[in-house]
Design a protein around this nucleic acid. Sequence first.
RNA 1: GCGCUCAUAGCUCAAUGGAUAGAGCAACGGACUUCUAAUCCGUAGGUUAGAGGUUCGAGUCCUCUUGGGCGCGCCA
Length: 584
Amino acid sequence: MIKSKIEEIIVKALGEIGVIDYPVRIDLTPEDRKGDFTFNCFPLARILKKNPQIISSELLTKLQREELFEELESVQGYLNITVKRKELFSEVIEDILSKGLNYGTSSMYNGMSAMVEYSSPNTNKPQHLGHIRNNVLGMALSNVLENAGYTVIRTNLINDRGIHICKSMLAYKKWGENKKPDIKGDHFVGQYYVLFEKKYDEEYREWQELNPDLNISKEEFFKISTLGQEAQRLLQLWEEGDKETMVLWSKMNKWVIDGFMETYEKLGCRFDKIYLESDTYKSGKKIVQDALLKGYVYKEKDGAIKIDLSELGHKVLLRSDGTSVYMTQDIGTTVLKHEDYKTDLQFFVVGDEQNFHFRLLFTILEILDYKWAKGCHHYSYGMINLPEGKMKSREGTVVDADDLINELQKMVIYIMSKRNISGGIDAKALKLAVGAIKFMILKINPTSTMIFNPGEAISFEGDTGPYLNYVYVRCEHILNKADIKNFDGIDYSKSVTSEEIALVKHLACFPGLCLSVAADYNLSSIASYLLSLAKKFHKFYHLHDVLHQDDSALKLFRLAIVRCVRDTINKGLKLLSIDVVEEM
RNA sequence: GCGCUCAUAGCUCAAUGGAUAGAGCAACGGACUUCUAAUCCGUAGGUUAGAGGUUCGAGUCCUCUUGGGCGCGCCA
């Protein structure tokens, strides 16, 4: 790999002027300046207490003997390096040609393991755009870690119990007439959840009219309302294992989960292990009781068990009646997950409204003396809003996951039907539509709140998934037409257009990028990288013909570049969990 | 009230403390007899919310102000 080769050369040269253990990193030289790679000497200036320009010049002298370099220039504290064309091209191109889709894969974290818990839906309603962000981030994060050498366990902790489930169960019991789903199961059950909320609203309004002088919020009203009490009674029955309730519960849960699986199939979500909260929700209790014996937690006079988190306050772990709270369950499942797989890292892909909760959880685990707790990581991501504001189920502005996929798929089919695409249009359109949605989400920094614009989503122009896929299609088409068998004996002195140089230099950065993302988890930097690569390729494509070359050596050289671009684009998209189509 | 977080072009977003803050969309003007125009080229668009500070250098770090978002249960 050319970049690390150069970095090693600089490390060696720095050693000769007495600098050791310095994390040398080179960047691409800005396009309006001469050079391929740049070493910035300013940070060193502080360490050496020397003018950066002097350091840069000294370094230049040391590096001049290197065969690899064509030219060196020291400008204002920056050392700009121009690599010999032949070396630059052959190093990068042959590396990619030999590795193909393994380009960027590394063994850096071999021997390490990570669990990624993502999706984790509630089984009372279908998934929406927010869940898609979660699913897509979870998939991509897993891929990136795996690609860097981690053994990855993908898990889904399905929240299949609790008061929200009982709401849809109750509505179904009362008004469902024992119907079977005539639509996708999660949507079917979701209708009853919505129905419950509607009826509950009505009850609340009526009550307000009868009691105009009492000011009780809708949430507080739940405890005294008929529907609220019935739902709570159902929860009790469930916890007691009441047969009729259990039968209804498993029936409805199956409908929902079957529906989820269909959506997961379309999105490409897969899990090595699915945890059900109905199995795990009790598991924290014993841990807290043991912790009491060890003195990590303490008992209040009323019997409640609490933990002292110093500046974070005190947190209840068992209620005075001995039952668990949400935190207790999370402690239990986290320990369980670790006992099951003993991974070095545990990622929780969960929205940023739970930042504080996870801060508490990890602090508690450390106090309970779990050594692996420092490997726990809340992969926090921001909400998705609409141009008009937040999605609100009450106002029907929630963007449903299945609807969105279907709509985009139809749109793509419409475009394709006008373009003479052969066979399997539905499947291709689905891939493109899902890819478009995924990329739209992944190009944005996971931590930031993002705004989803439906109009932009269907445009398929500019910085989009299809834009990247189009690079693949163009490359694939050229390579098919050329029908090239092998790339032996490329003449690297053939062509030196600025577009080719820019492409190759950019390609050279991919392995380093993969590693940095595996360390800082910023998936959107992969998206930026791919967009930049795609842009460079499309420009190259327009300015330089590949196939119609009399000079066969030039043709082979360009075909090699095309192939490298194709594989790198494909690989980058794979990391983002996006499948390419070969024709569009 | 306390804590966390965010504010960059009309809109949506980029920019490990590093060279002149970049893309896409929208607007306007160009390029298909060609390896697929879901593409490309060009024009225009900025006091990086405001005020101080740190330093060789700040959109990025610190303080304050203004304005958003989220959180702070023996809820989940």
